[in-house]
Design a protein around this nucleic acid. Sequence first.
DNA 1: ACCCAGGGTCATA
DNA 2: TATGACCATGGG
Length: 223
Amino acid sequence: MITAAGRLRRLYRRLLDSYGPQGWWPARGPTEVLIGAVLTQHTSWRNVEQALLRLRAVSRLTPAAVLAIAPEELARLIHPAGYPRVKAHRLRQLLSWCHARGGVAALRHLPTDTLRSELLGVHGVGPETADSILLYALQRPLFVVDAYTRRLFSRLGLIGGAEHYDAIRRPVERALRGATQDLNEFHALIVRHGKEPCRPRPHCAACQLVKICRYPVSLRPHD
DNA sequence: ACCCAGGGTCATA
DNA sequence: TATGACCATGGG
């Protein structure tokens, strides 16, 4: 990531002006953020919603209640989100950790560094899932780097494409001065912009790209 | 019949 | 360190 705090701030401002606040995370409660963060791994939010509907229909979405569901049954319930057995196992690992820690409310007392390293220690929780939970369930000032972020930053020349996760995350956190609400909106807006590929007329008002925006979603992070 | 979606782990070189 | 296979469903 080249040191481009000003460019990052202007990009954020343009995205916000174009789309308005996104009001993330789309969940009813904090535990649902944890569950959704696992379910949405390499999966469209549309499919995740179906899985959440099926889960909500049979259980309260608290760690204890979901852990009371038999693993095979849990897998069956979440199957619209894909990778049912993998995700059922990951959900159980994550919710067991949370439950052992006294529930989501109890997590608020712990420092961000501690929470992040413990989350990364949970099997099936990588950096994006951990940071989504920390930002959207616990309001910690972290920037979430996902495939849309890499693609957009790479198209804008802000990164080469091979940067490590933290090498993208930290500069954005500095550029936005660790303001939780801005980090929240920035990531949500990047996803919004990525989901609705902008049509240049003559250029995209949000990212200001002319040519690249005409290539919808086919470009990969390293293109 | 492809390609893609708000990733992560594991085996291998 | 860095690739590739694997996990699996639903929509374009």
